[in-house]
Design a protein around this nucleic acid. Sequence first.
DNA 1: CACCATGTTCCTTG
DNA 2: CCAAGGAACATGGT
Length: 282
Amino acid sequence: MPELPEVEVLMRHLRPRLRGKTIRTIEVRRARVLAPTSAARFRRVLLGATFQELRRRGKYLLFQLRPRDSGPPIHLLGHLGMAGRMFVAAAQIPLPKHAAVIFQLGTHRFIYQDTRYFGRLTLNVSAIEKLGPEPWDKTFTPAAFQKSLKSSRQAVKVKLLDQSLVAGVGNIYASEALFRAGLSPRRAARSLTRAEAARLLAAIRAVLREAIAGGSTMPLDFTARNPHGLFYFGHDRSVPGYYEEHLRVYDRAGKPCGHCGKSIKRIVQAARSTYFCPACQR
DNA sequence: CACCATGTTCCTTG
DNA sequence: CCAAGGAACATGGT
């Protein structure tokens, strides 16, 4: 479920549900997701700690907790990988098949689930140091964006996935932003003019902002038999407030472009699928 | 069986 | 040293 909009919506959902809750017990079913933190240290540091702040950085969630004893705040870093989910549910709700870490909070528990175990929940927060600016960072101007694109011979689509360029854009919204900007994903990053960089930056912000706005209106319930509220990944249309992001090109190969009616194409760049309209995107 | 999947990191090559 | 490309990670859906 995880590009910036999904993580943002999840963060807003979890924040009030975790704040002030104290961790009573911890069950680690898949120690790999804690790496490089050991399960022993993870338990030692977090048992008895209380959730306080929660924020998002790129596709990461940063939890801040007050330790069991007096001492500096604890920082816990989460990433959902390709298929991770996090949710708070009543203790009697059955655990999902791939529950990796379970925190008992009293009447409820906080569960990190990940079918592919590509995600992370770790005390090592160093990953965020390598991230580039947030898309809405005031210092991230069209000029700054173009400058960082200038150094690369890679295709612009591939560059957009580089989290040190801008944090939070993934494979879906990279294609969507390029479509919105009318730019071919095959363009060399360094070939973009200042005006094109400005257009692309505005498109990135627009597609992310719209996805967050849509996602914020729907219910999040990961414990339902058919989990919903997962944007692209939720499919229970019967739920009131159901929302599905309106992707214009992603996963739409062979379907008509909403703009010109010609067929959307799928190509492979850096071993990832890219979708675009060859007529509308130059 | 084949191929595909929202992400990141590590290794190799140039 | 750097940039770029590909494999690996693990599981499930089609």
